[in-house]
């Protein structure tokens, strides 16, 4: 029943991160992205089934790990995901920081460079 509890925890991670991402403040969105990353990692971990305490490591002299070892496959995937998530986080952080410097705003409602409010109408000619 360990997995079911963790599944509930993953749901809480997702809810918290989505709530943060929906806020209009850049820094909160950034926190939300980080939490979402953790939530996804936990999701993969849980769905790979969880067992207590036996790491997927083969003892010296043995050919196979001890019985009841943890599933190494999701761990390998998550390890990659953590690193990529971190790279993504730092990039977003710098992007948000630079956006704040240039636009002097951390509210997404006021950041309209890409889709300006008064975008020109398309020309009605050939």
């Amino acid at each position: 029943m360990l997995e079911q509890v963790l599944a509930a925890l993953v749901g809480i991670f997702f809810a918290a991160s989505i709530y943060l991402i929906l806020s209009k403040a850049i820094i909160r969105m950034l926190l939300g992205v980080t939490i979402l990353g953790n939530g996804v990692n936990l999701l993969i971990f849980t769905l790979g089934r969880v067992s207590r305490e036996v790491p997927p490591i083969v003892s010296n002299g043995e050919l196979q790990p001890a019985a009841g070892f943890a599933n190494p496959l999701p761990q390998a995937l998550i390890l990659t995901a953590i690193v990529i998530g971190f790279a993504m986080f730092t990039f977003l952080l710098v992007l948000g920081y630079r956006a704040y410097q240039e636009l002097d705003a951390d509210n997404t409602d006021t950041m309209r460079v890409a889709e300006p409010k008064d975008a020109p109408r398309p020309p009605l000619s050939y």
Binding site: E3, G11, F14, L22, L43
Partner: peptide, 14 residues
């Protein structure tokens, strides 16, 4: 929105 999404994730995982 966040609550529904979170609940959906948990339900699907179960």
């Amino acid at each position: 929105v966040a609550f529904i999404s979170g609940l959906g994730v948990t339900a699907l995982m179960l």
